[in-house]
Design a protein around this nucleic acid. Structure first.
Lengths: 322, 322
DNA sequence: TTGAAAGCGCTAACAC
DNA sequence: GTGTTAGCGCTTTCAA
């Protein structure tokens, strides 16, 4: 096997300097401007590309941020990830996205990131208590996005989930006058989902005339079928995310039953035009990403201060129109 | 800074062997079964995680595959990527997804992958000629997914785009009886999109009674507005992908104009339930991913044979129902 | 089956 | 501003 890649050594030889100088020239250390220009030119000529494995090994940190989420079919994640990437690549980081198929962060997932020498983790996965205990003291910065935790091992940037629930309930009940509401959610052990529900229920408190049912997203089809048979379909549905709202609308559409008011969460129609107007609880995704990246980068640079909790405000969003 | 990670050296010391033995024990080399058990146990106890940077540096190959695509808002990509991941992680590879904002593969994008020491590239980006010339001879395996190329530097797994175009046209014109068809596409310099159009037009050949217009996806809203003013809205629309089809449906929905027959391509509703029944040209995504990964892994293992071209059959898919 | 030695390409630390 | 030296953690190669 013949060596078929250009290293700093090659550049250094041609530029008649040491590899150290090349390293500095490329990473913005203190080098004579003239020398630097020469080195950059030669590097360019030879087609030099930095070996990030070597760089990461030596410096102890890869310029890689792991982004962890659970559902590869939720468009919300690639949308947010794209905003994250935009902010991270400005600082020279690349993103390692990992769709793991579990809602909680555990040791296995963590180790996978660790083995890649990532310098930071952004996770949509709420940590388990065991995990939280196991990693305490490790020094790879982790930030929880859109999820809540009490742990001191994570920073977090979350939505104002409680208010989101309130907004949804006010919309469906006070504004649209719904009297028979179905709330579709996932695992309520995920605390931010619990908070949405809490917010929603807080509006219901003095409204005994409103029927209220809860159902798991995975069971929603059976649930609707059942309600349909019983002739008690809801006149308002709130779904914990837009993808589930689409699923619900699909149920109505495919059965040719006129859809009631259906609301979602995440406002993905801000970025993607959906075939129908879906009212949703939205937030500034760009701001969310920017905030998260800002905090994480600060941590990766060594800021070891108190953990940070930011809450991103939410708003009611009508479906977006072309 | 105190060392806060466990290395092979630590494991080796505790197991009273050398690091080489540890390395072999972990990578399945020839080690005494007894020794191996002991080593694995100790590694587990100490919480050892392999440093992939060191591994990649030494061996010259990271167990990383770069997946390149252009549009982070197209749900098709995360869906396929998920299938790719499923197949790749079985072989110990992880995926580096990179959403670059250009439809073509160029040197910059390539170098970014290169600097990560990736051992293979799966790209939805058609290579430019310059790029193709520049990399010839480099030995990092590349596979083009869903795109066509004549280059001998890439393997490719593509859809049968021509047939896809034919199926769509037959459906809209022969089956649905459309007489005024709008074809919405992106950059026709992308050869697979050109082929879809060719397939579509081949059906139109002897049908002079069918009006046929073409429009760019980015202009489709203006186009529809204009046609609407002229009172000549199409009775059938074919879109080069499902996301664009949704955009078109959004236009109709938001203006309260009854939608005509609208078709898409990619059949994302196989994985995601959309709020309406969208007829689409689909294919077996799982098969696509499996085929692609199979070829790439073979290459990464050193198979240096002739370029491989696979074509995945397409079919007509009705919208999926909950 | 195991060990010893070397070195992948880069950068930290220090010297000049 | 530049060079020297050393070594990150792993795997390859060769020897025992």
């Amino acid at each position: 096997m013949t060596k078929n890649h250009v290293t700093m050594k090659d550049v250094a030889k041609k530029a008649r300097v040491t590899t150290q100088t090349v390293s500095r020239a490329l990473s913005g250390g203190s080098v004579h401007p003239e020398t630097q220009r020469r080195i950059l030119k030669i590097a360019e000529q030879l087609g030099y590309v930095k070996n990030s494995s070597a760089s990461a090994l030596r410096s102890g940190r890869a310029k890689v941020v792991a982004v962890l989420y659970d559902d590869p079919r939720n468009l919300f994640f690639p949308l947010i990830t794209d905003f994250l990437q935009e902010n991270l690549q400005r600082e020279g980081y690349i993103i390692l996205t990992m769709a793991v198929r579990k809602p909680r962060m555990d040791m296995e997932t963590y180790n996978l990131s660790l083995s890649q020498n990532v310098s930071g983790i952004i996770s949509y996965l709420e940590p388990t208590e065991e995990f939280d205990g196991a990693i305490s003291g490790k020094n790879i910065p982790m930030l929880l996005l859109g999820r809540h935790t009490e742990s001191v091992n994570f920073d977090s940037v979350e939505f104002d989930d409680f208010s989101g629930g309130v907004l949804a309930a006010e919309r469906l009940i006070d504004h649209d006058g719904c009297k028979n509401v179905l709330y579709v959610t996932e695992n309520l052990a995920i605390s931010c989902l619990k908070r949405r529900l809490d917010g929603f229920e807080s509006v219901l408190e003095n409204k005994s005339d409103v029927r209220f049912g809860i159902c798991e997203a995975c069971d929603v089809i059976e649930k609707l079928d059942k309600l349909n048979l019983e002739n008690s379909l809801p006149d308002g549905v709130f779904c914990f995310n837009d993808m589930t709202a689409m699923k619900v609308l699909n149920w109505y559409d495919s059965r040719k039953i006129p859809a009631p008011k259906v609301m979602g969460f995440d406002n993905i129609s801000q970025e993607v035009l959906l075939p129908c107007q879906l009212t949703s609880v939205g937030s500034d995704k760009c701001e969310l990403a920017k905030t998260a990246v800002g905090i994480l980068i600060d941590r990766m640079r060594g800021n070891d201060g108190e953990r940070i909790r930011k809450t991103i405000p939410v708003f009611l969003a009508e479906g977006t129109t072309a």
